[in-house]
């Protein structure tokens, strides 16, 4: 039986990859269109929050 802490680690790896992807795309987008930075930031935070909800849900259900 794999202990839940390993599952937590897996979730963090998955969440980290996802957040990294969001962050890198947002940075590229802001670099291309600095005037749209605030809109991109808001969208980035929303997607980040959705991802975070998923990851935290998994962490809590796993516990």
């Amino acid at each position: 039986m794999i202990p839940s802490i390993v599952g937590a680690g897996l979730i963090v790896i998955g969440g980290g990859l996802g957040l990294g992807k969001i962050g890198s795309s947002a940075m590229e987008a802001i670099a291309r269109q600095p005037e749209a930075a605030s809109k991109i930031q808001t969208a980035m935070i929303i997607i980040g929050a959705l991802l975070e909800g998923l990851a935290f849900g998994a962490l809590i259900l796993g516990k």
Binding site: A49, E52, G53, L54, F56, G57, L59, I60
Partner: peptide, 13 residues
Amino acid sequence: FSLMLRLFANITA
């Protein structure tokens, strides 16, 4: 549900 869990989990963590 995700609203509930996100706030709870962030503050608890």
